Deep mutational scan, measured.
Amino acid sequence: PDDLEKRARELLKRGKNPDEIREYLRNAGYDQSQAEEALKRAL
């Protein structure tokens, strides 16, 4: 898994919901489609 996916998994483990994770990834400078893909793979 790429770093983005790892980060998404990490956040899920900490109890973040998908919307929070999307926002976090966007704020971290990733584009929307990258964030969506990583989140899908992590779920």
Rank of each mutant, 00 (worst) to 15 (best):
D31N: 12
Y24A: 14
D31R: 03
E36A: 05
Q32L: 13
G15N: 03
N27D: 11
R9E: 08
R9V: 09
A35W: 07
L25T: 00
Y24H: 10
Q34M: 13
D3S: 11
G15H: 03
K16A: 13
D2P: 09
R7W: 15
E37G: 06
D2K: 09
E36V: 04
L11K: 01
E20T: 04
K16D: 07
Y30I: 08
K16C: 12
A8M: 12
P18K: 07
S33L: 14
Q32I: 13
D2M: 11
L12V: 11
Q34A: 13
R7G: 04
L11E: 05
S33V: 13
K6V: 10
R7Q: 14
L43W: 05
L43D: 03
R9P: 00
E36K: 03
Q32F: 12
E37C: 07
E20K: 03
L12T: 03
E10T: 04
K6T: 11
R7D: 06
K16N: 08
R22P: 02
D3G: 09
R9G: 07
R26M: 15
Y24V: 12
E5V: 15
Y30V: 09
K16V: 14
G29D: 02
A8V: 15
L11Q: 05
L4S: 06
E10Q: 06
E20F: 10
P1D: 13
L25G: 00
A8S: 04
R7A: 14
N17G: 10
G15M: 03
E10L: 04
R41H: 07
G15R: 01
D31L: 07
E10G: 04
P1I: 15
R9M: 10
Q32T: 13
N27M: 13
N17R: 10
S33A: 14
G29F: 02
R9C: 07
R14L: 15
L11F: 05
E5G: 07
D2S: 12
I21A: 03
K6M: 13
K40D: 09
N17A: 10
G29L: 02
N17L: 12
K40F: 08
K16E: 06
K6Y: 10
E36T: 05
D2Y: 08
A38Y: 04
E20V: 04
P18L: 12
N27Q: 12
G15V: 01
L11N: 01
G15I: 02
G29V: 01
S33Q: 14
E37R: 08
K13V: 09
R41P: 01
Q32S: 13
D19L: 05
Q34E: 13
E20G: 02
